[in-house]
């Protein structure tokens, strides 16, 4: 349950540059804010919903003979964030947009919500930030 000092971070824009971003992606900073603030709630919408879905994706590319295996790995970071105690929501509509089978691979601990349900909870938060 949210408290009045909580922050809701809504991540809508996703997959914003694998090679140039590597570890320093949105979830990296969310995790840091979670640590600094004492706890954040995260809502994944748009294609960021895919961060909450398990996949066979290997976060690596071969470029110029080097295997660049330090690309962003959002599922790993999201699991860490959940282990840290953060609350993570994913919007139902956006989960469905990833295909009928996406919900079967939802990461344990991620809570499904409707968009309307989440908006109704905005008043529970001291801060609502698109991140």
């Amino acid at each position: 349950m949210a408290t009045t000092d909580n922050t809701l971070l809504i991540i809508e824009r996703a997959h914003r540059g694998a090679v140039e971003t590597q570890f320093a992606d949105t979830l990296f900073f969310v995790r840091e804010l979670h640590r600094q603030s004492g706890g954040v709630h995260v809502a994944l919408r748009g294609l960021a919903a895919s961060y909450a879905v398990d996949t066979t994706y290997e976060a690596a590319l071969r470029i110029a003979g080097r295997t660049l295996d330090t690309l962003p790995d959002p599922r790993r970071l999201l699991r860490q964030l959940l282990d840290d105690g953060a609350t993570v929501f994913v919007e139902e509509t956006d989960l469905s947009a990833l295909g009928a089978r996406a919900r079967e691979r939802l990461l344990p601990g991620v809570r499904r919500v409707t968009g309307a349900e989440l908006v109704s909870r905005w008043s529970d938060y001291a801060r609502v930030w698109f991140f």
Partner: peptide, 14 residues
């Protein structure tokens, strides 16, 4: 840092 365009460009170049 906006989209995966740079990654695609490098993948395509390779």
């Amino acid at each position: 840092h906006r989209t995966d365009l740079v990654t695609s460009a490098l993948r395509l170049a390779q």
